[in-house]
Structures are given as C-alpha cells and as structure tokens.
Amino acid sequence: MNPKIAWMTVASIAITVGAYSLSRWIGARRPSPLTVPVFLATPMVMVAITVTHIDITGYHQASTIMTYFLGPATVALAVPFYRHRQVLRENVLPLSAGLIAGTTVAMAGGVLLARAFGLSAALQAAFSLKTATAPVAIADAPHVHADPTLVAGLVVVCALLGTMIGPKLLSLLRVRGEVARGTALGAIASGQGVAQSLTESDLTGAAASIAMVLAALVVTLLAPLVMRIFGG
C-alpha cells in the first residue's frame, strides 16, 4: 500500500470515529429519530472527506476495513435473541405469524411500488430488503443483485420512517399490546425500531429485538422469491 493511501485510510477511519462519537453525544442530549448516528454522522463524514480532498475514492479502503466488522456484528445479534427467547416462547404463534405477514407485505408492496414507479431492477431489489436490519440486508444484497450501498441507505431511511410513523399508526389502529407494538416496530424498523420500542417498555423492546432477528431471516429467505414473482 503506498503511503498516501495508507495516510488517507487512517484519516478516514479517524474522521468516521470522530463523526460517530460526536453524533452519539448529540443524540444522547436530543434523542429523536433525526439524531440517530447514521443520519447525523454520514453528512459530517461526507463534508469532511470532500473538504480534505480524500473523496470517496480515498475513503474506499477505510470503508472496506470498517464494514468487515458488520459480519461479526451480525453474529452478535444472536445474543439479544437468546436473552429474550422467553418472549418468543410465550407468543410464538402471534409473533411469528404477524411478522411473516407484515414483512411479506412490506417486501412485496415495496417491490411492486418501485416497479410501478418505473425504478430500475436493482432498486426494486433494494426494496425487497429494506426492512431487514442493515447488516443482514447488506449481506443479502448480492443474492438479489442489489447494490449494497443503496440498500444500506434505503434501510436507514425506511427504518427512520418506521420509527416516525409506527407508534402513532399503531395507536390509531388501537394496537395497544406491548408484544404487538414491539413486533411491528422491530420487524419493520429493525434497530431503530428496537430503540424506539425500548422507550415504551422493556417487554416492547424485547419483542422488538426478537422480531428484528426473525424478520431479517424472513427477508433473507423470501427476497429471491419476492423478486422472481413481483420484480420486473
């Protein structure tokens, strides 16, 4: 590796860690779906690498190194799932039937709308993955010929929409049960939905983290099928 690339890689990682820490600090003081780290830190990094002329090409190596850890981070999702398995055991039928139905609707609906709007096949494929938790959606991307970067962006935006719309929508539909609310938010708004659910109650949060992992499995297994049926 030549010294210039090495230097840009180190600087890129430092910028990313700095922007992330700053966004966590802001998010802790003003908690809102709009102050989640990805939403705040991403534009900060974009500005920083543009100003310093590192640019997206110089950032690439650092990005590869940092995103490698998404793999073990996904493996680690087994831990909250294991911890909250009791919630699943007590609600196995409603929870799994609900999240399979909801996830399928969100996947098929997203792909059909993207197709109706004349979006490209790669974008339609991204819509089939958008409700899965980002590490899984990104890993799924090559399997349905979607672009991992666009998938990541879409996942973050859709999870944000879910946390903004979800709680009010569920109340409007008179969905008051903690398990029902948690399952809906975790299945459709993944990590951000889990964080939102934890502000409602512990049981809501536990249901959400179970639903997030199961829904990611549903997306992984069904995405190729959904694309074959609804994509075009």
């Binding site: 609600n91 409603p94 929870l95 039937a97 609900g98 999240l99 139905a101 909801g102 996830t103 609707v105 969100a106 996947m107 609906g109 997203g110 709308l113 993207a114 709007f117 979006l119 819509f127 958008k130 409700t131 879409l154 935006v157 859709c158 929409l161 879910g162 719309i165 979800g166 929508l169 569920l170 539909l173 969905v175 049960g177 398990v179 029902a180 609310r181 399952t183 809906a184 938010l185 299945a187 459709i188 708004a189 639903a211």
Partner: peptide, 17 residues
C-alpha cells in the same frame, strides 16, 4: 414507495399479532 410499504408492513404486523 418507502413510506407506503413501511406503513403497510407495520399496520399488518401489529394487526395480525
């Protein structure tokens, strides 16, 4: 497309559970 499909997904999940 994101708003509509996310809304449908949350509504269906919550209602079915």
């Amino acid at each position: 497309a994101g708003v509509l499909s996310v809304t449908a997904g949350i509504a269906v999940t919550g209602a079915v559970v």
